[in-house]
Design a protein around this nucleic acid. Sequence first.
DNA 1: TTAATTATCGAGCATTGCTCAATAGCGACG
DNA 2: CGTCGCTATTGAGCAATGCTCGATAATTAA
Lengths: 193, 193
Amino acid sequence: MASGNPAQARRRARQSPDERRKQLIGIGLEMLTTRPLHQITIDEVAAEAGISRSLLFHYFPTKRDYYADVVRAGSRRLLRATRVEGDSIDDVVAGLLSFIERRHEPYIALFRSSGTDDWVHEIFRDTRAALTDQVLTALDIAQPSELVRAAVGAWLAYAEELTLEWAQHGTGTRERVHTLLTGALEHIVRAAR
Amino acid sequence: MASGNPAQARRRARQSPDERRKQLIGIGLEMLTTRPLHQITIDEVAAEAGISRSLLFHYFPTKRDYYADVVRAGSRRLLRATRVEGDSIDDVVAGLLSFIERRHEPYIALFRSSGTDDWVHEIFRDTRAALTDQVLTALDIAQPSELVRAAVGAWLAYAEELTLEWAQHGTGTRERVHTLLTGALEHIVRAAR
DNA sequence: TTAATTATCGAGCATTGCTCAATAGCGACG
DNA sequence: CGTCGCTATTGAGCAATGCTCGATAATTAA
């Protein structure tokens, strides 16, 4: 199943903590592309890494902590993807579209399965807050009121939903969706002021 | 903790299957007001009902099936709450606002904790689809294009997000939120046509 | 070479979803 | 009123899984 090196190799191949952490989180991220978070068991991760369960608990005090680190890593990817494109609002929207288009599977696995517990949702909120900041910056809104912030945050929910629908079922063209998103954003921000 | 009758009473108090089902689902719904879905264990439900774990599996072949029935029951409540108010779009929005205002805790517990597995999200989608129909009817849109349907569905995400924010942190007044929602809906539908 | 550090493992515990054979409450029928 | 059948109900037990803990071996410092 899981690709890569089975890493059964020799026993007791000692590695530096940093390497191990990266490896384990990398495995988690890769598994996330296949199944939702809560379906990833410690046993599987350990097996894929070629280590014992115990070692994973040596690096991550609890399963939650491991999950949290994996999800955080995934979030960072998303934020990076929307930032590289540029600073205009069109760039941010384009970045979001591209990211979800290419990775809607893992995206869903990441955030739609937030339910595992509040802590995932917290990370999700942090990510969305960061995205909100990006959007506000792109709109040249320096000191938004609470309501504007909330409205933009909610618009992100709208954007995600519509984009996922498009990515999954091909509802409309990419340009159309893009236009709808920017149009809605403009309207929403104007109305919330 | 959990209120109600501990039901320890006499052992082997035989009941009709219908009663038992209702009782168990009721317990699930009540527990949902306290914690997210996935934190509800069969043991607890059984204990609260005063029966053995095994009996629960007699009525619900698997934990998922039990959860699914509980969530469906919760969804029905939501749909009822938005329908009683009336037929106009203002009524639907008002119903949504009222429901989330009064029950944002259980609402979150219901749907934000979808992660347990795809099946919850399916029920969630069904519920949202039904809500979408209500909205479309209220807007007098008989045969919406796929894009319009998708846009309205995504607007529901926007509405939920903004309403939850308002209900939880008091961002803006109720009237303001109401206006924002109807305004955004109008704009979105017009743009998607 | 020896000592200290710590990455790594194996065995084992507790919880939890789930199975299955046995038991007991309740209605039907003589 | 007895007894028989149906099935609601139970208890013991299995398997998976998160997690703990003492022991061990690889690496580094002295």
